[in-house]
Design a protein around this nucleic acid. Structure first.
Lengths: 202, 202
DNA sequence: TGCAAGTCGTACAGCCGCATACGAGTTCGG
DNA sequence: CCGAACTCGTATGCGGCTGTACGACTTGCA
C-alpha cells in the first residue's frame, strides 16, 4: 500500500548491503530467534554499525526480515496453480513452498518477541488467509475434514511444517525426503476421516 | 537409578519451599522459556535468594523442573492401560496426559537452551521411547502407517501437542474441546492411509 | 575529480540478568 | 528453649547486548 520505500534516494552499494543484511537476518533469526545484531552482522559479513546505519533498532530489523520473507511468499504463491482439486493444489503448494513457510514461521516467533501484536498480525494475515481459503475450498469439495475448527487445521499445518524444518535441521530427517514426508502428513491431517472409524470421546 | 536424593537431611519447610519453587518453575518456564529466576521466585512467592539456597544456578533449577515434570509423566503412564488395540491405547494415553506432555515439551525447549545436549536426552529418552514402542506396536497390528520414518511420527505427535497447547493458551482453541481435537488429529497422522488415495510425489 | 554517501572500528553508556557476599530476622525440631 | 536450618533483602561484581558518538577510511556517482 505504501507507494515504494519513502527513500528512493539510496546508493547502489547501500542497496546491496541492505539486501545482504536482510538475507542474513532471515537466516540467523530462523535458526535462533534470539540472534544478536552482531551475529547477523557477522553472517552478512558487515560491520555492526552498518546495520544501525539502515535500521534504527533491532525490532526494526526483525520486521524488515519478516516482511521480506512474507513478500517472497507472495511471489511464490502467484506461481502456483491453486485451482482444481484442493488436495492436489495443497500438495503443489507444499512442494514449492514448505521450506519457505517453515522458515517464515520460525521468523514469526522471533518477531513475536519484539513486535507489538497488532503490527505482527497486520503483516502476516494475508498469507494465513490464503491457506485458510484453500482449506475451506477443500472442505466444500468434500475432500477435507469439517469436524475440526478451521483455525486449528491451518495452524496444525504450520506446526507440522515447523517441526519438519527443525527435524531436518537436527539431522533426524533426510533432507531429500522431507518434502514427501510433509506432504503425506499434512494430507493425513486434512483428509476427511473414514466415516465411523473414529472412536467417540468417552 | 539414584538411591534417593543425596541429601535426606532437610527441614520440612525447606522441602515445602522447594516444592513450591519447582512447581512455579514448571509453570513459568512452560509459558516463557526465558523466564527469569526472579519471575519464578515471585510466582513461587519466595525471595530470589531462597532459590539460590537450593539451586546453585539457573540451569540447575531448569533441570529440576524438567525432571519433576518427567517424573509426573512416569506416574501418569503407570495408570494407563497400554495393552490391546494400539489405536485405542494411544487415545487413552492422549486423553490422560496430553496437557502434561505439552507442558513438558515447552519446558523441554526451555531446557534445550541451557542444558548440555547429552544431559537432556538422557533425561527425556525414557518418555519418548515408550511412545515409540506404542507406535511400533500399532504398526505391527496394521493400524498405524509404516510409510514414514518412526522418528518423524513420534516427533510429529509432539509438535502437534505443543501446537494444541499454544493454541489453547492463546484462546484460539476452546479448552474444553482441545483433548478431542488433539486425539482426532493425532489419530489422522498415525492411521494407515487408504491404500491408493495418495498421490505419488511428482 | 571531488563531494556526499556509505562503511566500519572503537569506545562508551545504560540496562538487565546471573550469581555471590553479608547479615539480620524467622522457623523448625530435638 | 536453644541452636541450627532456613528465609530474604540489599549491595555488589560480572558479562552480554543494545544503541549512540566520533572519526577515519572507502566508494559510488555526477
Amino acid at each position: 500500500m505504501v507507494p515504494a520505500d519513502t527513500r528512493p534516494r539510496r546508493r547502489a552499494d547501500a542497496e546491496r548491503s541492505i539486501a545482504r543484511i536482510v538475507s542474513a537476518a532471515r537466516d540467523c533469526l530462523s535458526r535462533d530467534p534470539d540472534a544478536t545484531v552482531d551475529d547477523i552482522a557477522k553472517a552478512a559479513d558487515v560491520g555492526r554499525m552498518t546495520i544501525y546505519g539502515h535500521f534504527r533498532t533491532r525490532p526494526e530489523l526483525v520486521e524488515a526480515a519478516l516482511a521480506d520473507a512474507l513478500q517472497a511468499g507472495e511471489q511464490m504463491l502467484v506461481g502456483v496453480d491453486l485451482d482444481g482439486d484442493a488436495q492436489q493444489a495443497m500438495n503443489r503448494l507444499l512442494a514449492s513452498s514448505w521450506s519457505l513457510v517453515a522458515e517464515s514461521a520460525a521468523l514469526l516467533t522471533a518477531a513475536q518477541a519484539v513486535l507489538p501484536a497488532g503490527r505482527l498480525r497486520e503483516l502476516h494475515t494475508g498469507a494465513a488467509d490464503r491457506v485458510e481459503q484453500l482449506i475451506r475450498r477443500g472442505q466444500e469439495q468434500g475432500v477435507f475434514r469439517t469436524d475440526l475448527p478451521i483455525t486449528w487445521l491451518v495452524n496444525a499445518v504450520h506446526y507440522l511444517l515447523n517441526g519438519a524444518a527443525e527435524e531436518t535441521r537436527l539431522g533426524r530427517l533426510d533432507p531429500a525426503s522431507t518434502a514427501d514426508v510433509v506432504t503425506a502428513t499434512v494430507q493425513a491431517v486434512l483428509a476427511t476421516p473414514p466415516a465411523n472409524d473414529i472412536h467417540p470421546p468417552r
